[in-house]
Amino acid sequence: MTGPKKGSRGRAPKRNTAQGRGGVTRDTVKPARERTTSRGSEVETTGSGKAGSRTGPSRTSGGRTTPGERRSGAAKTSTNPARRGPGERAVGERSAGGRGADSGGERKEGAAGRTFKPAPGRKPPPKLGRKPLPELKRVQLDAPPPDTVFLDRDGERLTFPDSNLKRAAAALLSEKKKAWRYRPFPFPLFTDSGNETAFHFDFYVYDYEDSVIRLLLVVPFESREVWDKVGRFKRQYPMYDYELWTPEKLARLSGPRGRLEF
């Protein structure tokens, strides 16, 4: 088939060719050469006897520059101001006589006349020290005398001369008429490395069917070691209920509104 393609309306396909001013491309322009005559400089296209465009005489005297020099100077001054260095100015600014200096001969930088100084480095944020933990108000318990004898569930006589907390806990359990024993058996705990250790609670509270209903651990204060062991016990023996009795909790349970939850 001959003729243009359907839908093209007889137009030639477009080319991705760089175009100059007026739609001139490299394919349509022939190389030109310049020759100098008595009337000035003339531009003549190659292969034709006719002269092309005439340019005026090139005058270099008197401070005037040729058109080619003006174009090269404009290309130099067209540098993006954002890409200049801190103390760098354009070529036209350097060549200006009074623009870069004030009446006293001092150079000015920037629009406001202030010297450009790079911003100082950002200071790191101040380091905040660890706040000390608030001191707990130590509770003075009214513990029984060191030679006080307590009877457990089996009628065994026990004394705790070295621990005020254990005497206060035993007195509270006896006052509330709870069946308790002091460390009757240990719980084997397995560490992360596979080793087995024995873990004791202090008081084991029983019901009427001789079943353990509550495990009590009496400690002067809570610590990471205590919670580590208690956490392992909770993961390995989730069927048991336990409590940690500190001096603060003993003072609260021993008060007039104190009530055991078992």
Rank of each mutant, 00 (worst) to 15 (best):
A112Y: 14
Q140L: 15
A32Y: 15
W227D: 12
L260F: 11
V149R: 11
P67T: 04
S174I: 02
G113Y: 12
G10W: 13
A12W: 13
A82K: 11
P125D: 06
R21W: 08
E44D: 01
N80Q: 07
R114P: 02
P132R: 02
M239I: 11
P186S: 07
D152M: 05
F201N: 01
K177H: 15
R107H: 09
D207G: 00
G22M: 07
V139F: 07
T79P: 00
R9M: 15
P67G: 04
Q236I: 00
K6H: 13
G97A: 14
R122N: 07
A74L: 15
R259W: 09
L244S: 00
V212K: 02
G22D: 13
L260P: 00
R21S: 10
M239C: 11
R107Y: 14
S174A: 09
P86V: 06
D207C: 00
G49D: 12
R252E: 15
S8A: 15
K117L: 10
S48E: 06
R33F: 13
R259G: 02
R138C: 06
G100L: 12
T17P: 01
A169H: 05
V219H: 14
N195T: 10
L165Q: 09
V218E: 09
L133R: 13
R26Y: 06
D207T: 01
T17E: 14
G3M: 03
G10V: 03
P124K: 08
S223L: 01
R183G: 00
A119W: 07
P118W: 08
A198R: 07
R107F: 14
P57A: 00
V139R: 03
K123F: 08
G85Q: 03
V226P: 00
P184Q: 04
E261A: 08
A82N: 11
L189W: 13
L217S: 10
V219P: 03
G100C: 04
T45I: 03
P86Y: 12
L133E: 15
F199S: 01
A82W: 09
P67K: 05
R94H: 14
R157D: 15
G105I: 05
F116Y: 08
T17M: 10
R26H: 04
Y182I: 04
P120H: 05
P256D: 12
R94V: 10
L216V: 12
T25G: 11
L215I: 00
R214I: 01
R21D: 10
N16D: 12
T115C: 06
G62T: 07
E225V: 08
E135V: 08
L165H: 10
P220S: 05
G258V: 01
T197M: 14
P132W: 03
A111F: 10
V139N: 02
V24I: 06
E261Y: 11
P125W: 04
R11A: 07
G47L: 06
Q236W: 06
V24W: 07
L128C: 05
P145F: 15
R114S: 06
